[in-house]
Amino acid sequence: MKYRSNLVSGIVSLILGIVCILVIPCQIGEDYSVTYGITSKTVPYAVAVLWIVCGLVLMFQSLIMKKEEVKVLDVRKEVKAAGYMAVLLAYAILFRKSFLLSTAFLGVVTLAFTGTKRKSFYAIVLVIVAVLYVLFAKVLHVQMP
């Protein structure tokens, strides 16, 4: 699947800028101190405007100036990447329950995603997770979930 890098970036940047402008009033309160024009909202608004301007510039470059890089999206690879991101999400949920089990799960699944079949690699990763747990929980006294 082909896509135009500048055009996609431009649209994303424009949308982000607009969303940011809409979100700022709900997320940042009014500044009642002496501000000389620079309030807590100024920098976020400046970034939002920057995104909108940059988004428009990228779209202009793509559509009018035809300055564009066409990229190819390898759907099979991206499905794999999306699957791995879903694993990361599952890991984030499991992490609260237990560092040891969730991280062991993540290590094993990561190896499975790389397609390796060597059992020794799985064993090495599991040992490393256990060592990290002991290192943090017992040696460095970090409270692990």
Binding site: Y91, G107, T110, L111, T114, Q143
Partner: peptide, 29 residues
Amino acid sequence: DLLTAILVVVCCAGAFAIGSSEMDVYVML
């Protein structure tokens, strides 16, 4: 492949160690 898996788990442990908070792990991911 082994290196990738090792680095992922080391990063997760490292992120938690920043402030003993799950939030840092979520931010990283």
